Simulated assay, not measured.
Amino acid sequence: MTNHPAEKIAVRDLKVDGPFWGALKRDLLLSYRRKSDLINPLIFFLMVATLFPLGVSPDSVFLAEVAPGVVWVAALLATLLSMDSLFRSDFEDGTLEQLLLSPQPLFMVVLAKVLAHWMLTGLPLTLMAPLLGVMLFLPADGMSGLVLSLLLGTPTLSLVGAIGAALTVGLRKGGVLISLLVLPLYIPVLIFGTASIQAALTGLPVGGYMAILGAMLALGLIMAPLAISAALRISVSG
């Protein structure tokens, strides 16, 4: 598949704007042109939360109990849905090889691409989460915990998912393999994200859960770009 010439990255653009800001601006611009990539995760997120009461039970008490888990699982799956395309277009048009061969630090470019993915997927999901919480009868006491846990947890999901996307970028159908690779790594984020909301609902302090989610995010910001860079070099060279 041949992309529009305007979609191809030029290494000189990274030199002008810097590797981080140049890659971030480019990915945001390309995603704006491909509006389906922006809308699909949000529609999936909304569909999961909407269909769950129809398939299980519309009882408000039951839905209030399971709302934290439903919202978090829906956010996790919606993030995973968009991971396969993170490096795919760059790999197909040769941009990824240019990035690997350029003198620009791959660490910063990778971090910018993950940030762009979170801004276009994780952040909108976080902003939409209170609406889904209301639909699932989540009490008002849990709304702050819901938003804060997603703000800290969804960037970690993007960082971990990008490792799987980098490892499978050279495969034709890597979506299922990405799921198998990263879902086990998503479990701790899911556990502490839902636990923080449950703690907020019961009046318990949520600072410990948020600290753990923040520690996971800090570790991901340091380690994940290194792992992603190494995975991209392995996938392209292989």
Rank of each mutant, 00 (worst) to 15 (best):
I197W: 01
Y32L: 13
G174Y: 08
I39G: 09
A218D: 02
A166T: 02
Y186T: 08
A200L: 07
A215C: 11
S235A: 15
V169W: 14
I9S: 10
S237M: 10
V16H: 11
G203N: 00
V236D: 08
V114M: 12
I234W: 15
L80T: 06
I212V: 15
L80R: 01
L185G: 12
P58H: 04
Q104D: 09
F137P: 02
T50H: 02
V73D: 01
S60F: 02
G220R: 02
V176G: 09
L219Q: 08
T2E: 11
L180M: 15
P124H: 12
L99S: 03
E92K: 12
S158T: 09
L115S: 02
L86K: 05
A230Q: 03
K35N: 06
T194Y: 06
M47E: 13
A49N: 15
L120Q: 13
L115W: 06
L232D: 08
A23R: 03
L167N: 01
L51H: 10
L167Y: 14
L63I: 04
I178F: 04
G214H: 00
R34L: 11
L151V: 13
V48S: 10
L131E: 11
L96F: 06
V16D: 14
D37Q: 15
L99K: 05
A218N: 04
M223F: 11
L177F: 06
G220M: 01
L28V: 11
L221F: 07
